[in-house]
Amino acid sequence: MVRIQVTVDGQRCEDEVEPRLLLVHYLRERVGKVGTPVGCDTSNCGACTVQLDGRSVKSCAVLAVQADGSEVTTIEGLANGEWHPMQKAFKECHALQCGYCTPGMIMAAVDLLSNNPNPSEEEIRDGLEGNLCRCTGYHNIVKAVQMAAAEGGAR
């Protein structure tokens, strides 16, 4: 067991964890942040994307011990207030169907805008290539990212 300290969505957590524990399972099963889902286990789908110290990571590809001393933001802690502009844009543009890829897609999109506040459609499609969606055909997701960009969605 290893003792770690992680700040998750502004809440300070201190836990004993096994070295093999993945960050996504730590978040879901120990901290209760089940809003971050597991989609593929092999870091291909991006459903489990969270921010680790402000940068997006696939939390199935990070060990909990690697997050020691870090700040993690999940979809549940993204909004500073009621909505984050990206969340609002995803709802308004119907950038979701089943919703399972949505938390990771939103977290990756926020990171995309923090690197490139005004991406072109092509830059959005390239930038989000690591996040798979099986329902929507991606079209509305691109529109949502554009809408969020227009409203300062990088914050």
Binding site: A79, K91, P103
Partner: peptide, 13 residues
Amino acid sequence: TRVDGRDKVTGRA
């Protein structure tokens, strides 16, 4: 818009 849209964009679903 989706009646469950908010739950799905906030991780509450």
